[in-house]
């Protein structure tokens, strides 16, 4: 059984090589079998046929064959729902370990058929249903559990369809190359943020604090919309961002070395939790970990860069 299962897996892997970007469901890739309900219908057909033979019922024969024809008609439609469908992977948004990664897919229909009841199944069994309009596109996401930080690749998933009758199931395998970044799981109750821990001294540091307006500077991607000087932008045709001065106390330095004594994953977890908190509370923060550092800043882009560095930090014992 196990051997058979392995054979099947290698067979499927060979038939469905990884495709980057998008793939089209051609007839070689689609499989179809009757469902349990379909087998029930088969049994019904058999009983009707025996009944028709025994009672010499001509119209009983006709009815039996008519039902078989209807079943065939349903089979073709189930198959047609997948045939020629094009599926492309869209960039996945990063998640934290322990959450489910959502791999968005675009299903596009170019053959002029409305396709209903398309179901995407991830290997862990979560299912998403969607309908693809005629010559249109539908978005759906495959949810995959992301237990560990790092890069999560979209595993081989199933796309299937039981419409219109539920008597047959047609399916194919999605082997799209797509990745999702998984940030470390943030520590649940981290210690307070280490304010100004290493830079020392008091006073004000001109820059991008929060409290007092200090002037305008050019807009950088990642600046919060509330910081954009809309009035000036309208006059000058360039986007400007307001800068503020803030007390040193609201500057956070997140340093790997501060967390000596914890193991790598625990450190990453705490740093992640601190980044989230600093961001939420509006502090500027810098991150220093072996092989990566980022100066004081804040905003979505900064946050993403810092968390990505944590996500991709070499695991303990990996030698990197």
């Amino acid at each position: 059984m196990n051997l058979l299962g392995q054979r099947w897996q290698t067979f499927i892997a060979r038939r469905h090589p990884p495709a980057s970007g998008s793939l089209a469901l051609v007839h070689k890739r689609i499989y179809i079998v009757p469902t349990r309900r379909g087998l029930g219908l088969g049994l019904l057909l058999l009983i009707s046929l025996v009944g028709a033979i025994n009672y010499q019922l001509s119209l009983g024969f006709f009815f039996t064959f008519l039902l078989a024809g209807i079943a065939h008609s349903a089979l073709l439609r189930t198959y047609a729902a997948l045939l020629g469908l094009e599926i492309a992977a869209r960039p996945a948004e990063a998640v934290f370990a322990g959450e489910a990664a959502q791999f968005p897919l675009a299903l596009s229909e170019k053959k002029g058929r409305e396709r209903t009841g398309i179901t995407l199944l991830s290997p862990d069994g979560s299912a998403t249903r969607c309908d693809v309009p005629q010559r249109g596109e539908a978005r759906a996401a495959i949810a995959v559990a992301a237990p560990r930080r790092g890069r999560l690749t979209l595993p081989r998933s199933r796309i299937e369809c039981r419409a219109p009758t539920g008597w047959f199931v047609a399916w194919s395998y999605l082997t799209l190359v797509s990745e999702c970044l998984v940030y470390p799981r943030p520590e649940a109750n981290p210690p307070p943020l280490p304010f100004g821990a290493r830079s020392g001294g008091g006073g004000l540091q001109a820059g991008q604090g929060d409290d007092d307006f200090a002037g305008l500077r050019e807009y950088h991607p990642g600046d919060a919309p509330s910081r954009i000087a809309w009035r000036q932008a309208a006059r000058t045709d360039t986007l400007l961002a307001k800068t503020f001065q803030s007390p040193l106390a609201s500057q956070v330095l997140l340093d790997w070395e501060m967390l000596a004594g914890l193991d790598t994953e625990a450190r990453l977890s705490r740093l992640a939790a601190w980044i989230l908190r600093a961001e939420a509370e509006g502090h500027r923060y810098a991150l220093v970990i072996p092989g990566f550092s980022r100066p004081l800043d804040h905003g979505a882009a900064h946050r993403a860069a810092c968390l990505a560095a944590l996500a991709l930090f070499p695991a303990e014992g990996s030698g990197a």
């Binding site: 025996v50 033979i53 025994n54 009672y55 010499q56 001509s58 024969f61 006709f62 064959f65 008519l66 039902l67 078989a68 024809g69 209807i70 065939h72 008609s73 349903a74 439609r77």
Partner: peptide, 27 residues
């Protein structure tokens, strides 16, 4: 439409499926 599509197959099998001269078992 599904019913209409089934009709040609039903007619073909109706004509060609071997008919037995008597019942399979006593009714």
């Amino acid at each position: 439409r599904m019913l209409l599509e089934a009709v040609p197959l039903a007619i073909l099998l109706f004509v060609l499926f071997p008919r037995l001269p008597g019942p399979l078992w006593h009714i």
